[in-house]
Simulated scan of single mutants.
Amino acid sequence: METTSAHFLLRTAERWLPAPVFSLVLQLGVWVAVIIFREPRRHSRSYLTAILGRPPSWREIRRHFLTFAQMHLLRLVVTEGREHHCRSLPDCRDFTALMESGRPALLGSFHVGNSDLLGFFLGRYRRRVQMVRYRLGDPANLRQLAAQRNAGVTFIWVNEKENLLFALKQAVESGESIAMKCDRVGYSAKLEAFVFLGVPRWFPFTIYHLGIMFQRPVTFCVSVPAEPGHSEVHGFPVFEPDAGTKEENLDRARAHFQLVLRGVEALLRTNPYLWFNFTPLNPEASPGNSTARPWPPAERSGADSNPGGTKFNEDARKARTSHGVG
């Protein structure tokens, strides 16, 4: 639903139409989008059914689309220089301390609320960040947004696979931080399953493998709308790789990510319409898989330290394929 023509039409209408007229046009445009965009509508219904515990009404689907349109418009006007303030909440203490330390880190987020403005928010810490993103059409809007307040954000395009690993390694070796969204499974090489919306679902886990490989801390934050002109930033505890074995570090990382997902789900329970994935909801993991286990896992015997390994790999491949990656 994000195209160059949509950017132009939305921004032109907002700039030239009186506010009451623009509000009416936006409402009508959202109804049209709900009707004509069948796949996003289907995925919205699937997600809302999972979080509401019942099939959503057409008005609830429309509200989901409208909330996304309002976020998208905010991103466009901030790109053009409109003042916007990101306010750190008390749960951001660990995140803030890490950012102010100057240590290179791996920064995770989700397609939730105003989290696309976090590159803008990072500008206050005066650090270089490579943001891993999917290139969709003209990326000029993202680059303009990152340039606001000298945010120091540049991009690594995840769908340019031939350059991805080299770019990540180069960013780490040069002391830059890396930011990535951790909710869409399509382009992740490392998938594991965690409880989300009541059942184990596949999520990208690459950020922790990179953190352990390069001995970098991992943390997450998300941004949600507040009063006009403001967003609130929620942070999470920092995961620090230690001198333990790789499997010990991965077990701690799994517990950490499950904690993060519980926090994200709590935010969505407060406002279900802030989940901006109009793509297939993270697929459910088959029961009994090893690394697909919901965290914490059931007790494992020594003879079954990696149950279902082959099936896990096959299910992970199917999950990626169903989301557009062979």
Rank of each mutant, 00 (worst) to 15 (best):
D91I: 13
L117F: 06
S305I: 13
V218M: 00
T279E: 08
R45C: 12
P20I: 10
W31T: 08
V129Q: 07
G29P: 07
W202R: 00
F37S: 15
G198K: 14
S177M: 00
A69F: 02
A253M: 00
L76N: 08
V218A: 00
L28P: 13
A171K: 00
R11A: 10
I61F: 04
M131C: 14
H230D: 09
Q70M: 04
L168Q: 02
A255S: 09
R63Q: 06
T270Y: 13
E314A: 11
H85R: 10
R93S: 06
V21Q: 05
V224A: 09
P104N: 03
S188Q: 14
A140G: 04
S44I: 05
P217L: 04
K190I: 10
N306D: 15
S109K: 13
V199D: 14
P225R: 06
L259I: 02
E240D: 14
V77C: 04
G81T: 01
M1Q: 08
D304M: 12
G235D: 00
G113T: 13
P217W: 09
E247Y: 00
G108N: 00
L26M: 05
S305G: 10
R15T: 11
A243H: 11
Q144D: 05
L274C: 10
G211L: 01
L17E: 07
N150M: 06
R42F: 09
G302V: 13
R269W: 05
C86L: 08
L26Y: 06
L136G: 10
R38I: 09
H43V: 09
A292Q: 14
F205K: 06
R93E: 15
A243K: 11
R317I: 12
G102Y: 12
N282A: 10
A69K: 04
E284F: 04
Q70R: 03
F236D: 08
F196I: 02
N271M: 13
L250K: 14
N271P: 10
P280K: 07
S57V: 06
G324E: 03
M99S: 14
R300D: 05
D304P: 06
G309H: 02
F194C: 09
L74R: 14
K181I: 07
F37P: 01
F276Y: 04
V264D: 02
Q170P: 01
G211Y: 00
L142R: 05
R11Y: 15
D242I: 01
F203Q: 06
W157N: 12
W295V: 11
S322D: 07
A285V: 01
S231H: 08
L210V: 11
A285S: 06
G244K: 03
L9G: 12
G186S: 12
V325E: 10
S109M: 03
V260A: 09
R216P: 02
V260R: 04
I178F: 02
L48K: 07
P90D: 15
I156W: 08
S286F: 08
P287G: 03
V224H: 05
S301C: 03
D91Y: 10
P204Y: 01
T3F: 08
M99V: 09
A179Y: 00
M1D: 07
L281R: 04
A33M: 15
R126F: 05
P20M: 11
C92V: 06
K318T: 12
V185W: 01
L197T: 04
I35K: 08
Q148G: 09
Y47V: 01
K318R: 13
G186K: 13
T245H: 12
A105N: 12
